[in-house]
Computed example of a mutant assay.
Amino acid sequence: MKIAFYGSSLLSSYWNGAATYYRGLLRALAAHGHEITFYEPDAFGRQQHRDIEPPEWCRVVVYEANPEALARAAVEARQADVVVKASGVGYADDALLAGLLEAAAPHAIRIFWDVDAPATLAELHAAPEHPSHAALKRLDLVLTYGGGDAVVDAYRALGAADCVPIYNALDPSTHHPVAPDARFDATLGFLGNRLPDREARVEDFFLAAAEALPQRDFLLGGSGWGDRDLPPNVRDIGHVPTRDHNAFNVTPMAVLNINRASMAATGFSPPTRVFEAAGAGACLITDDWPGIDLFLKPGEEILVARDGRDVAEHVAGLTREDAGRIGQAALRRVLAEHTYESRAVLVDTLLRRLVADKAAGAAA
């Protein structure tokens, strides 16, 4: 099938947490015989901070962030068998969705792929006149990168024909164990951009833990922290490109995952960081959220913390030997159950079923 996928960016992870998800899933889908074109706007400095060049398994079209270029990109959807509009493209999202619904061929499957369901649903519930309410009824399927039953039920209640979570996962070809790198030496590392919905939780889970353990070294990676007052034992290294994520994960004794508040409350929303770290064999400490045990077993494959005090206790009681054992258990689990290939099998099955159903309906 020809898939036209409109998202934030495949080429750059700069201020774009969905990059790893897109790359892993679309690469795996391409291996199932799909011909994929990814459309992304030239916005937010991402093209100046590319992590990868266009890959052989996907054609990439970068369009200018203006109405004329967006319209030209949207029209190309009429050549596709599957048209996907992701959430959070970042430029004229509503206009893009409307343009794609108009351009898509009658036989095409129309999909909205939500990579931040808690935020999207909050926006829709707060705005009954939002154009996406009408658009949902014209779609064949909503896919989300997490959320569980709460998100599925919410989308169906809003009029979606169906909603299926396609969880984050591991691409073993890009995220895997490597040798430690002295640039990332620390007791505990945290990698995440500074976002309003996360900052208070970073203060609680990471910075408070650092203050409680002044003799330990803490490493902070991600964009936006430069003007933030930090404890003296926290080293801010700024944006960490994707090519360095493996080394960042394996070098500290442990690494920390902190979900944004809305995703933690919704649950069943493991970010890419969870699988990146597990895929590198890192010992991962995560904030507590419903559904963790669907992916990794607390206490054996991942450590769970309710607050910064729990994080500090985990770090204080952890040895390199314990951390290595937890990291290896996590690596075995994600390789067995949580790769992008397994997610792609589900997506491929859904697409083929929808195509067959639409063809049968047209023939009736």
Score class of each variant (00 low, 15 high):
S87Y: 05
L96T: 00
A329G: 07
D217F: 09
D51C: 09
A208Y: 02
I36M: 05
N249C: 11
A179M: 15
H49I: 03
Y21R: 11
G90S: 12
A134T: 12
G291W: 07
Y167I: 02
Y6L: 12
Q328G: 11
D287E: 07
L191P: 01
R343T: 03
W15A: 10
V334K: 07
A119K: 12
L96R: 06
I258K: 01
N246Y: 00
Q47S: 15
S223W: 05
L284R: 06
V152Q: 03
V304K: 08
Y340Q: 14
P118A: 00
E68T: 13
A127S: 05
A69I: 09
L101E: 03
F206S: 06
H338G: 13
G7Q: 09
P54F: 09
R110E: 05
R46Q: 10
R46K: 15
L143A: 08
A261H: 06
E76P: 01
A305L: 14
D244I: 00
P180H: 02
R352K: 10
A182E: 15
Q48L: 15
I258E: 00
A30N: 13
H130C: 06
G279L: 01
G192S: 14
L219H: 10
D114E: 03
S13I: 04
G308L: 05
A74E: 12
V315S: 05
H338M: 08
F44H: 14
A330N: 03
A65E: 14
V347T: 06
P128A: 02
A330I: 08
G148S: 04
T187M: 11
G361S: 08
I36H: 07
H32C: 07
A209G: 11
V311T: 04
V311K: 10
A323I: 07
G317T: 10
E123Q: 13
S269M: 03
G361I: 03
R194W: 14
D229Y: 00
A95F: 08
S12C: 15
D153G: 04
D51S: 12
R183W: 08
R260L: 01
K2E: 08
Q48N: 10
L97N: 06
R353W: 01
H245F: 07
D162T: 03
I326R: 06
G148A: 02
N246R: 00
R183P: 10
D236S: 07
V304I: 10
A305I: 11
A247F: 11
V61M: 06
I292G: 14
A265D: 00
S173V: 06
H175G: 12
F248V: 01
D51Y: 05
E203H: 07
G224A: 07
A312D: 12
L70Y: 05
A264R: 04
E68Y: 11
F295M: 10
N249G: 01
G7L: 03
M253D: 04
G24V: 10
A186R: 09
L220F: 11
L97E: 08
L124F: 02
A31Q: 10
P118E: 01
L136R: 03
A182P: 12
G159C: 06
F268W: 13
